[in-house]
Amino acid sequence: MNAVFRADYYRMTGKKWGIRSWLDLITRYDLRYLLHIRSRRNVLFTLKSLRASRKYGLEILSSDIGEGLYIGHAHNINVHPQALIGKNCNLNKGCTVGRENRGKRNGAPTIGNEVWIGSNAVVVGKIVIGDDVLIAPNAYVNFDVPSHSVVMGNPGKIIPRENATEGYITYKV
């Protein structure tokens, strides 16, 4: 097991990697998917991740994801290959981190450390999301967000708040 996957495993389960962890890996498809995307250099793991992508709607194609990724309710999560995601980030069901194809925000987002992205939230365009940001469920974000903020609504509204993700991001690595 590589160190990055072990950090992801800790974030997902709250347990250190050990002999009993293999049972979790066998019974939980979200952990298997994380193992597959962290081991893309291996052809077998790449094929298995493609199969899981089709089966569960998981399309996490970005190769630059920091350690400690947490996938909550792992269905229909899309991350563009050019997106950059920092450490200890949470992606919840139905969220999209995508590319904008025209205009001044042409490109994919850069997401900082300790960012919580809620269910069905959409983060698009060449924007920068700071550290310690909570993006509420169903929010639409196509603008830069400063660190220590909460974003909610459509169109998104920024609410400054210290420790915005406190209680939302657990088992930090």
Results as ranks from 00 to 15, higher is better:
38 R>S: 06
73 H>E: 11
130 G>D: 10
52 A>D: 15
132 D>W: 08
53 S>F: 01
84 L>W: 09
92 N>Y: 08
161 R>D: 00
104 K>D: 14
28 R>S: 10
141 V>K: 11
146 P>S: 05
133 V>W: 00
133 V>M: 05
64 D>P: 09
25 L>S: 10
18 G>E: 14
69 L>G: 02
109 P>R: 01
78 N>F: 15
66 G>N: 00
69 L>T: 05
62 S>K: 06
80 H>D: 13
118 G>H: 09
21 S>H: 03
110 T>H: 14
163 N>T: 01
106 N>R: 14
168 Y>N: 13
109 P>E: 11
23 L>F: 13
143 F>K: 05
107 G>N: 10
77 I>D: 03
102 R>G: 11
113 N>Y: 05
134 L>H: 05
128 V>F: 04
55 K>C: 09
99 R>F: 14
68 G>P: 09
4 V>D: 05
49 S>D: 00
68 G>S: 08
32 R>L: 15
83 A>R: 04
44 L>Y: 14
4 V>A: 07
67 E>Y: 06
6 R>Y: 03
101 N>W: 09
169 I>C: 07
101 N>P: 00
94 G>F: 00
158 I>E: 03
101 N>E: 12
99 R>L: 10
45 F>T: 14
29 Y>P: 02
72 G>C: 11
33 Y>D: 02
130 G>K: 06
37 I>T: 06
20 R>H: 10
31 L>V: 07
79 V>Q: 05
100 E>P: 02
136 A>L: 07
26 I>K: 08
40 R>D: 03
43 V>G: 06
167 G>N: 03
127 I>G: 12
126 K>F: 02
59 E>Y: 15
12 M>Y: 08
62 S>M: 10
16 K>V: 11
61 L>A: 11
110 T>Q: 13
22 W>Y: 15
39 S>T: 15
91 L>M: 08
16 K>S: 14
27 T>E: 10
122 V>F: 02
109 P>A: 08
73 H>L: 10
98 G>S: 07
108 A>D: 04
170 T>Y: 08
63 S>D: 13
169 I>N: 03
49 S>G: 08
111 I>T: 09
91 L>A: 10
144 D>L: 02
32 R>Q: 15
87 K>C: 07
112 G>M: 05
119 S>A: 14
23 L>P: 09
132 D>I: 02
